[in-house]
């Protein structure tokens, strides 16, 4: 293998001063600054760029209306919503969050009513679990129930701060259920209601 590098390396032009000579002729300050600059680029700038480039995207705050918001991971996409609902999708699953409305009793009682309506309209063979209660990250009451239909799984949540109530419904094909159910649970758990005046 042959290249122009070898002859050119040793061939000095009589009319042009090599770069090193020109730098040395200037007291090498330019060269010293160049060395320092390149070292700083590698030791400081590149790691900073990498940190920004590889940092996970900040969680997205999704306003569902009435001052209520949820924290959505980037895996959720916001679909076109209408009728005051917020619709998020992920892996073939759809999470619909209704606008907040005044609370109508405990979250379990509300969920029981919803489940009864649901079962009445669901295909034969559908079954619902008993409501399971939990607290959101903000400390508000929440409950969830899962309705298993022959072709799909539906999960509903009711979250209430005592004054306002929010209903969220996840519909997912069986294949996407495990993953999306956990993600939806995390999203609902992040729900924050507006601060009420003391």
């Amino acid at each position: 293998m042959s290249s122009g590098a070898a002859p050119a390396a040793d061939a000095a032009s009589p009319t042009r001063e090599p770069l090193a000579v020109r730098l040395i002729g200037r007291g090498s300050l330019a060269g010293a600054l160049l060395v320092l600059g390149i070292a700083a680029l590698y030791a400081v700038v590149l790691p900073m760029v990498a940190e920004r480039a590889s940092a996970p995207a900040p969680p997205r705050i999704v306003d569902v209306g009435g001052g209520v918001s949820v924290v959505s991971e980037e895996t959720w996409s916001e679909a076109v919503s209408d009728g005051g609902t917020t619709t998020l999708t992920q892996g073939g699953a759809t999470l619909v969050i209704d606008q907040p409305h005044p609370s109508e009793g405990s979250v379990v009682a509300r969920l029981d009513d919803l489940t009864a309506d649901w079962i009445a309209e669901a295909p034969d063979g559908s079954v619902a679990t008993a409501p399971r209660t939990f607290e959101t990250d903000a400390g508000d009451d929440a409950a969830t129930v899962v309705l298993q239909e022959p072709q799909q799984t539906v999960q509903a949540w009711v979250v209430s701060d005592g004054e306002l109530e929010v209903i969220a419904v996840l519909t997912a094909p069986a294949t996407a259920w495990d993953k999306t159910s956990s993600a939806a649970q995390a999203l609902v758990r992040s729900m924050a209601f507006p601060e009420t005046a003391p």
């Binding site: 590098a5 050119a8 390396a9 061939a11 001063e17």
Partner: peptide
């Protein structure tokens, strides 16, 4: 070798 060309060559 490439650096030598850059800083020493008159090309």
């Amino acid at each position: 070798i490439g650096l030598a060309v850059l800083v020493r060559s008159g090309a």
